[in-house]
Design a protein around this nucleic acid. Structure first.
Length: 482
RNA sequence: GCAUCGCUAGCUCAAUGGUAGAGCAGAAGACUCUUAAUCUUUUGGUUCCCGGUUCGAGCCCGGGGCGGUGCACCA
C-alpha cells in the first residue's frame, strides 16, 4: 500500500466515524466573535468566546490537549479536556486531525506559561481535512508547490501570508490615496480591437458574434486619455494588463498596472505625487522608509532608503557618469567602448538602443534607492511631450528603485499631428496599427496633462522584499503539467 | 530560445556505483499546563519519466517532462 493512500485512508476512516457518530464532517454556519488573532489580542480572562479556525498543531498530554487553531489573521491556543466536553464529544474529538476546521465555544484563561488560551466547552466540526498538511516547522519549501498550490503555501508559510496581506493593504491604500485627491477610478476595455499604449506582444482572441479579432490590452493608456478629452479631470485605473512575452522573476503574462492622469499637470507634478504616495505606503504599511530585503537565512542583503527628496538626474548625465566621455564619442567609439565594458550591443541597430542598453545595465540595475531619470530620448517614449528647449528629449521621468523601472511619468503629448507622426514612426509605417479613433479624439482637444504608470507587482516586490514577482502574485502562470 | 542547477516517503531533507535512511506528519501506547511538548513502539518508496552502460544505477550516459536562476526577449 502506498504511503499517501494509507494517510488518506486513515482520514477517510475518521470521516466515516464522524458521520456514524452523528457529527456532520462538513459543518455549516458558525458565528464567531472575530478572527483568532483579534480574539487573542482582545483576550479577557474568564470571558466567553466563540472562535473558528483550522487545527494547525496538537500537543497531547494524556486527557489534556493543547491545540493551535489558525486563520488568515494568525493563531491561538485552545485547551480541550475530556472532563470539560464529556465522553461523547471527547470521542468525536479523537477523530479530528491537524488540518481540520473547527468551531468552538469556550472560556479565556491563561496557562502557567502565560499563554492566552481558550478552554473549550463545546465544539463543532466545520470541515474535515482529507489530506495531510505540509510539515509544521519548515512549511512548504518547494517553489513549484508554493506557486501551483498556493493554498498550501498560505496555510503553511506565515511569510507568504504576510506578503499577500501587505499587497492587499498597498492596493487598498493606493486607491484611497488617489480618491482622497479627487481622482476617479474608471474601468476601460480589457478587450481592444487595437492593442495600443505600449509596444508589447498582445494576446489575441476572437469575438464570435461580431466576427472580429480582439486583443487583451497591453495598457489602458489610450482609453484613459479619451476620458481626458471627455472632460474627466483626474482619472485612474488599477487593474490587469496582459503581455504575451517571456516569463521571468520580474515578468508575469498578466500583471497589475496603475495608470493615472491629471489634467493641467505635468510630469514633475506627477513625480511629486508618486513620491508622496510611495512614502505614504512605506510608512503606513511597511514599517518605515527603510525597506530591508533579506535572503533565505534572514540576512539583510540590501536596504532601500526611500527618504525624500528622491534623487533626480538627466538621462544623458547618468550615462556620462557611468561611461565618462560617452557624449563626445562617435557611434563606432561607443560600440567599441561597450565591448570593453562587457556589454553586447551587436544586435542593436540604432544609437539610442545602444545607449539604452548602457543605461539599463550600468545605471538602472545599480540604482537601489529611488532615482528619477528625466530628459529621456524621445525615441523611447512616443506618447510624451517633447521638451521645449531640447527637442531630442521628452518631458518624462522614469522612476527606478531596487534596480527596476517602477514607474514612468509623462507630460502627455496632446498635439494630434505630432502624436500621429510619432506613432507612425514607431509602428514602422504599419498604419494598420494606428488607433485612428484615439487620434481622432485628440483632434477634439485633450487638455495638457500629467500621466503615470506604476507596475503594482514590482512596487509590492520592492516594498515587501520579494525577490520574485511570483511571490506577490497569488496564482502566477505556470506551464501546464503532464 | 540558450546555459546552468534541481526533482528521493504526505512535508523538510540524507544516502563513494553495492540492502534507500532521518526528522516532522500518520498509527499504537504512557502522561492533567503543553507550545517545534516529551518518552516507547511502529507503518509508509514507480528515487519525475523513457532508454542505455554495468554483475549491480537514486548516483554514470542519452532523450524527454516540470521547476529555480542567469542570459536572450520585453518602451
Amino acid at each position: 500500500m502506498e504511503s499517501i493512500s494509507e494517510l488518506l485512508a486513515v482520514r477517510r476512516q475518521k470521516l466515516e466515524a464522524l458521520s456514524v457518530a452523528g457529527e456532520s464532517p462538513f459543518g455549516g454556519r458558525f458565528d464567531t466573535d472575530g478572527g483568532v488573532a483579534e480574539l487573542r489580542a482582545g483576550f479577557v480572562e474568564g470571558a466567553g468566546v466563540r472562535a473558528a479556525g483550522r487545527i494547525t498543531a496538537h500537543r497531547d498530554m494524556g486527557k489534556s490537549h493543547f491545540l493551535d487553531i489558525s486563520d488568515f489573521s494568525g493563531r491561538m491556543q485552545i485547551f480541550l479536556h475530556a472532563k470539560e466536553v464529556g465522553p461523547e464529544r471527547y470521542a468525536i474529538f479523537k477523530h479530528l486531525d491537524i488540518g481540520d476546521w473547527i468551531g468552538l465555544e469556550g472560556e479565556c484563561f491563561t496557562t502557567k506559561s502565560g499563554e492566552p488560551t481558550l478552554r473549550v466547552k463545546s465544539f463543532k466540526v466545520l470541515s474535515k481535512s482529507l489530506r495531510p498538511l505540509p510539515e509544521k516547522w519548515h512549511g512548504v519549501q518547494d517553489a513549484e508547490t508554493k506557486y501551483r498550490q498556493r493554498y498550501l503555501d498560505l496555510i503553511a508559510n506565515p511569510d507568504s501570508r504576510e506578503k499577500f496581506r501587505q499587497r492587499i493593504a498597498i492596493v487598498r491604500a493606493i486607491r484611497r490615496f488617489l480618491e482622497d485627491r479627487g481622482f476617479l477610478e474608471v474601468e476601460t476595455p480589457m478587450m481592444q480591437a487595437i492593442a495600443g499604449g505600449a509596444a508589447a506582444q498582445p494576446f489575441q482572441t476572437h469575438h464570435n458574434a461580431l466576427g472580429m479579432d480582439l486583443f487583451l490590452r497591453i495598457a489602458p493608456e489610450l482609453y484613459l486619455k479619451r476620458l481626458l478629452v471627455g472632460g474627466f479631470p483626474k482619472v485612474f485605473e488599477l487593474n490587469r494588463n496582459f503581455r504575451n512575452e517571456g516569463i521571468s522573476r520580474r515578468h508575469n503574462p498578466e500583471f497589475t498596472m496603475l495608470e493615472a492622469y491629471w489634467a493641467f499637470a505635468d510630469f514633475e507634478k506627477m513625480a511629486e505625487l508618486v513620491e508622496e504616495m510611495v512614502c505614504h505606503l512605506a510608512e503606513t504599511i511597511c514599517g518605515g522608509l527603510r525597506i530591508e530585503h533579506k535572503d533565505a537565512d534572514g540576512q539583510v542583503t540590501k536596504t532601500i532608503d526611500l527618504t525624500r527628496p528622491w534623487k533626480r538626474a538627466r538621462y544623458a548625465d547618468l550615462i556620462e557618469e557611468a561611461v565618462p566621455g560617452w557624449g563626445a564619442m562617435t557611434s563606432e567609439e561607443r560600440r567599441a567602448r561597450c565591448g570593453e565594458l562587457g556589454l553586447d550591443v551587436s544586435h542593436y541597430g540604432e544609437d539610442f538602443e545602444v545607449a539604452q542598453h548602457v543605461f539599463e545595465k550600468l545605471v538602472e540595475e545599480k540604482s537601489i534607492n529611488p532615482l528619477y531619470v528625466t530628459h529621456c530620448p524621445k525615441e523611447l517614449v512616443p506618447l510624451a511631450k517633447q521638451n521645449v528647449d531640447d527637442d531630442t528629449v521628452v518631458d518624462v521621468y522614469e522612476l527606478v528603485i531596487n534596480g527596476q523601472e517602477i514607474s514612468p511619468g509623462y507630460s502627455e503629448l496632446n498635439d494630434p499631428d505630432v502624436q500621429r507622426a510619432r506613432l507612425g514612426a514607431q509602428s514602422g509605417g504599419e498604419t494598420q496599427k494606428l488607433d485612428e479613433d484615439f487620434l481622432n479624439a485628440l483632434e477634439y482637444g485633450m487638455p495638457p496633462a500629467g500621466g503615470i504608470g506604476i507596475g503594482i507587482d514590482r512596487l509590492v516586490m520592492m516594498l515587501t522584499g520579494a525577490e520574485s514577482i511570483r511571490d506577490v502574485i497569488l496564482f502566477p502562470h505556470m506551464r501546464r503539467r503532464e
